[in-house]
Design a protein around this nucleic acid. Structure first.
Lengths: 337, 337
DNA sequence: GTAAGTCACTGAACCGGGTAAGTTTCAGCG
DNA sequence: CGCTGAAACTTACCCGGTTCAGTGACTTAC
């Protein structure tokens, strides 16, 4: 089956290629009557502009890129990325932008991908996740002048836009809630320590605990995987001064922690309260369902996509706080026995 | 920053654009010495061929498409798609093909996306999942002559290649295992009934149960979500003749089922044995860890990508059975009390 | 009545690669 | 020595859009 081109439309409408291009793009330069005729023909023969030709002349590829820099086995189970992706899609699809995905192993490899994409003119902009302090990707993106939006922060990203949620406020709320329930020995199992949002959370966690006079606080670093979540939990529960509540930096580790507690014969929430970060169906799936810090990840992704499209259009975008994080109490938290 | 083009290379090497093109693509027509010089210059200035220009002349977009037709909230939690995607990537990345993703709501919308991608020449081929009997997408793909690979089957997909795993053998193995443990009342919570692989599984399940003389078998249809998994489980456990073992068509529903059993005060595996389909970290995360029908989803995806690239290259690809499904016994199965 | 301006449209250049066809150079050979 | 033929290039056009500089025709203004 042959693909129709604007030349085909031009022939059938009895006008030049240029006129067809103006008509299809809503540009001035054709009469309303001609435009309607051309649009009707395009519709009739099922015309879609060749994206390569368009990108070649018009500079826009109408695609954005996303790299996923986590091992496959975490990617699969963490609802976070898929939530984000479906949020992007909602926004990108509406503007008929495509989303190009690439799984990478290291930030260096990620930079390589950015360079390649840029050189190939394959994408108009990128969404950057898992931002670290002094992230090596930022200067590269600035040098390439590749429109970008960073998810996570707030931090120093120079001229590149940022979308972030109030992690500090969220963890403060969680701690206050646990303290109100009567907990005094609160521990935390964090994500990868050099990620920016982990640092933000850790700082806020230490501050609120200090200000509430809790002295027995500890943060065990982990890496978002179930295995590490189990290990960290075991370490915390074996110790002499066992915590009565644990806050986890993601849902997967929280579920793993729950399993460890049950395995050790501890009742949840009787002997141990559990709070998960990022509410996903996973949290309501287990028994007892997990109290979680919820935010609308899809909306977050949609917002990021919107900002990126703005950046691509040359509009200045800044530092945006998106969505509210709120505590959703469920069965995994209660006053300590 | 200006993007280097072959014209830049040509100027610096003192040859024509054509010679550069031949050199870069490993075509005959340039001497070995010149080729080396050109490649060195390309390397030095960080040249990447403009994908639009290449696609425009050469017909290859060097990208493949994947549509995800599930509601966002399932997409997020089901490890299946992400596993598949990372498998694709491993293969596509090696051939420097890009993966373009689109989330859709219905098969009809999916067809629209295929048509658009085809018209835009944005992709060279597509990977089709969630195949149904008499799937409406198949004839469209054939009409467009869009290279494609169907994941799932075996079924009737005409000239389009299929990758499938031996679901019938797997469920047979699971039932035999449960019977060997002493179970006689085995139930099943299935996925969406009109998906082809659900039908294959249901048929095989009924056959093996009949041949082993089990008469109390029942399959409750669900939709892969935790909610439906819970509901189906509750229905099965409330009934008079409670099953002593349940096989679930995915891991999410199995975990939900486990939670329901615990909530109802049933011991797993003492009062109820549970088998999950598609082993993911989720299965080892919960307590007790779930016995599962495992297969290497990434490898499955990589295989599919390989077949698709073959199809794009015009090689005939047929009906491939990929990977082995095997039972991984864990703590959720035991002889009935 | 004519100069100026607007509108609707055409023609051609252009984006950056790929590639068929043509040209030059040179080794090999009778 | 002249012819053949292949290697090593160059030239020029193609892909399918976008866009800019025209070009008539027709309106408006003084």
């Amino acid at each position: 089956m042959k693909r129709p081109t604007i030349a085909d439309i031009a022939r059938r409408a009895g006008v030049s290629k240029g006129a067809v291009s103006y008509a299809l793009n809503g540009q001035p330069g054709v009469s309303e009557a001609t435009r309607k005729r051309i649009l009707a023909i395009a519709q009739e023969i099922g015309f879609n502009a060749n994206s390569a030709a368009r990108a070649l002349s018009g500079a826009r590829a109408r695609a954005v890129g996303l790299t996923l820099c986590r091992p496959a086995r975490i990617l699969g189970i963490e609802p976070w990325f898929m939530g984000l992706i479906s949020g992007f899609e909602a926004e990108l699809g509406a503007q008929s932008y495509a989303l190009t995905l690439q799984v990478v192993a290291t930030p260096e490899q990620e930079i390589e991908v950015y360079r390649r994409w840029w050189g190939e003119r394959r994408i108009d902009g990128v969404i950057v996740t898992d931002i670290r302090e002094g992230d090596v990707r930022i200067p590269v993106l600035q040098q390439l002048q590749l429109p970008a939006v960073v998810i996570g922060g707030p931090g120093d990203t120079g001229s590149i836009a940022q979308i972030w949620s109030d992690d500090a406020g969220a963890i403060t709320e969680a701690v206050r809630y646990l303290v109100a329930l009567g907990h005094t020995r609160i521990a935390r199992v964090s994500g990868v320590p050099d990620l920016l949002h982990t640092q933000v959370r850790t700082k806020a966690f230490n501050e609120i605990c200090a200000s509430l006079g809790l002295d027995n606080v500890i943060t065990v670093p982990a890496d978002y995987t179930g295995e590490e979540g189990s290990r960290a939990t075991r370490r915390l529960l074996i110790g002499g001064d066992r915590p009565s509540a644990i806050i986890y930096d993601n849902d997967v580790m929280a579920v793993a922690g729950l399993a460890v507690a049950q395995e050790m014969g501890l009742a949840v929430p009787g002997d141990l309260s559990i709070v998960a970060w990022d509410d996903s169906p996973l949290c309501s799936l287990v028994h007892p369902p997990l109290t979680a810090l919820s935010r609308d990840i899809s909306a977050y992704g949609a917002q990021a996509a919107r900002e990126l499209l703005n950046a691509i259009d040359g509009k200045r975008v800044g530092n945006v706080e998106a969505g509210r994080v709120h505590l959703t109490p469920r069965g995994s938290t209660a006053p300590p026995r």
